[in-house]
């Protein structure tokens, strides 16, 4: 099976601190992969490396059989194919929700607001935000902002979506509405990689769960195996703390 996205011995260091110490990972088309592990284990950095927000120091990243980690490669076309949603939403505060979503398709794909309007309206409606399109981010709840951020990434029609602990900054009662969006995407067959602390969610929907520890994937497997019969003592220790 050829993977949609493949990481081979990916290494990333910040100054003299190595955050990713040779990571191998395959994500198949339509698959949902969850990265779990303590804060600082390298989950976020790994996601940021996947869509080239951070250049990797060594190793390779392949997308659809093409090496996208080649130094000097233009990262913009790659980023259009791999969307990312951040923990802190990172919406543009000076634009309405709809303008946030339309900016990139307008500037990158050269579409007009009129072209985009039907599709954007449909996305907002699908995620329960049909009446929030003209609101500014600070007029929206955390859960609504995060859903707008997801819509913003989806509007570029990426082939893969990365989610970086997108529910960690939310009040507990708002987590559900964001997870529902992920369930919806899962049903549509979107290829997804999540860094998450939502173990119940990972167990319910993931095809594969990877436990990261100190910059390495210590253990990976289907959720039913990894959660109930972890091999490594560190995985066991981590799971006993969070479950």
């Amino acid at each position: 099976m050829t993977a949609k996205l493949s990481l081979r011995m990916v290494r990333k260091r910040f100054d003299d601190h190595e955050v990713c110490k040779g990571i191998d990972l395959d994500v198949a088309e339509g698959e949902m992969v969850c990265l779990i592990g303590a804060s600082g284990s390298g989950k976020s950095t790994l996601l940021r490396c996947m869509n080239l927000l951070e250049p990797i120091d060594d190793g390779e990243i392949w997308l659809d059989g093409k090496d996208i980690s080649e130094p000097g490669l233009d990262p913009q076309p790659v980023r259009q194919q791999i969307g990312i949603v951040f923990q802190s939403y990172n919406l543009f505060p000076h634009m309405t929700a709809a303008e946030n979503v339309m900016l990139a398709p307008r500037r990158v794909h050269g579409l007009s607001r009129e072209d985009l309007r039907p599709k954007v309206t449909q996305l907002f409606t699908r995620f329960g935000l049909g009446d929030r399109m003209e609101h500014y981010p600070d007029q929206l709840s955390g859960g609504q902002q995060q859903r707008v951020a997801i819509i913003r990434a989806l509007a570029m029609e990426p082939q893969i979506m990365l989610f970086d602990e997108i529910t960690s900054a939310l009040d507990p009662e708002l987590v559900g509405e964001v997870l529902d969006v992920l369930r919806d995407l899962r049903k549509q067959g979107m290829t997804m990689v999540l860094a998450t602390h939502e173990m119940g969610f990972a167990r319910e929907l993931a095809n594969k769960v990877c436990f990261l520890d100190a910059g390495r994937i210590l253990e990976q497997g289907p959720p039913e195996v990894l959660f109930s019969q972890p091999r490594e003592p560190r995985t066991k220790a981590f799971l006993s703390r969070v479950l």
Binding site: R79, A104, R107, M156
Partner: peptide, 21 residues
């Protein structure tokens, strides 16, 4: 920096990031 990251992750060019974000 996260604003620039968000813009870059959507595939916006540096000029567009500066001008619009």
């Amino acid at each position: 920096q996260s604003q620039r990251s968000a813009a870059a992750s959507l595939g916006l060019s540096d000029q567009d990031t500066m001008r619009y974000v």
